[in-house]
Simulated scan of single mutants.
Amino acid sequence: MTALGFLYPGHSGEDDYPRMEQLLGSDIRLAVVHTDIGEDAHRVDALLEMGSDERLAAGVEELRLSGAEAVVWACTSGSFVYGWKGAHDQVRTLARRAGLPASSTSFAFAHAVREIGARRVAVGATYPDDVAALFASFLSDAGAEVVGVRGSGIVTAAEVATWGEDEVLALAREADRPDADAVLLPDTALHTASHLPLLEATLGKPVLTANQVTVWEALRLTDRRVNAPELGSLFTKEPIVQV
């Protein structure tokens, strides 16, 4: 049994996790602990507070008691908003507090882009444009070429969580670029676990979504590789190399 721990901000798209646990198999358990988000706003000052050490520390003990072997801060905007160096500092502090390997969704995207062999990516963000641009900057620091960014101007995670398949598919289509090797949808409030096969079939390329890459990152931290095609190209046995 491999137990994976996730610190998830508030309550919005967390039901993706039991869905993914079901698809991964009986020997993997996903433990989700909710953190207090403070103000629900995709605004820089609110996101910095959401990802503060104090808010993350409050859930660490519960995750340790769950038997988790690794922990991921399951929030994209609450990590990349700190910038490349600040996001590293955030993860190091989390690892120290938890006594476990740790990462965040932002780094999960960076690692997943490399895993599938993508060099150029397009971003379909639910965030306002200024916050979406910070994610693009983070990806550039990670070595990816961002060929397009599409923001949606949504301020709250609560609103994002109401989106269904049609809205998710429309966002991915609008974000896609002909020269993009993959499309990234970076919001853990967005329900995507049930839509990955459709997204990839429609776009004809890998699609990376926030909750998907978060779970993959936790598996990576524990040296597990799982073949689960229902969760997209990222969860196939071999990396997808773009030529």
Rank of each mutant, 00 (worst) to 15 (best):
A98G: 07
G124F: 03
G117M: 11
P101V: 04
A102S: 08
A95Y: 02
A118H: 04
G99A: 15
S103V: 02
R114V: 05
S106T: 09
S103Q: 03
V121W: 00
V123F: 12
R120E: 13
S104L: 04
G117A: 13
R119E: 15
R120V: 12
R96K: 12
F109R: 06
R97M: 14
A125G: 08
E115H: 13
A125Y: 07
I116A: 05
I116M: 01
T93I: 06
A98W: 09
P101T: 02
A95T: 09
A122I: 14
S103E: 05
R97I: 01
A95D: 04
R92Q: 13
F107K: 06
A122N: 06
T126L: 13
R120Y: 04
A122L: 12
A102K: 03
S106M: 03
R120H: 14
A112M: 01
E115P: 01
I116R: 00
A110D: 07
F109C: 12
A110W: 00
T126H: 07
S104N: 15
A95N: 03
F107G: 04
A102D: 10
F109Q: 09
F107L: 14
P101H: 09
V123P: 08
A98F: 11
T105L: 04
G124L: 11
R92V: 01
G117V: 14
V123R: 08
T93A: 13
F107I: 04
F109H: 09
R119G: 15
A98D: 11
R119F: 11
V113Y: 00
S104D: 14
S104M: 10
R92C: 04
T93C: 03
E115A: 12
G99H: 11
A125E: 06
A110K: 01
V123I: 15
